[in-house]
């Protein structure tokens, strides 16, 4: 629908999912439809759903899942799981 409202968000990718976007653009400013979920965002970015198992999803630095609804101004982080060292 042409008239529907858009929300503006920021996406930060750390780790292996960077391969799905331009290498030097790991922080993206995007517009999404209202009521969009994380799973919708992944589709827009061309990231296959199966990749979810290897990442931590944060919305405004708090834990989230593929069903989390995104609000305007949110910062979404996709971080490849890592620990140890």
């Amino acid at each position: 629908m042409e008239s529907e409202n858009k929300i503006e968000i920021t996406v930060k990718i750390v780790g292996h999912l960077k391969k799905y976007i331009s290498e030097n653009k790991n922080e993206l400013n995007l517009q999404l439809r209202e009521e969009s979920k994380i799973i919708d965002l992944l589709k827009i970015l061309g990231i296959p759903e199966k990749e979810i198992k290897y990442i931590m999803i944060l919305v405004n630095r708090q834990p989230a899942s593929k069903e989390t609804v995104i609000n305007s101004g949110d910062r979404i982080s996709f971080l490849t799981l890592s620990e140890g060292g």
């Binding site: 750390v14 780790g15 292996h16 931590m56 944060l58 630095r61 982080s77 971080l79 890592s82």
Partner: peptide, 19 residues
Amino acid sequence: ASLHEVGTWGTVESNQEAG
């Protein structure tokens, strides 16, 4: 593969992003 590629260094940026 990520460990092979960048070792554990990847955690620097992850933890930074998480605040």
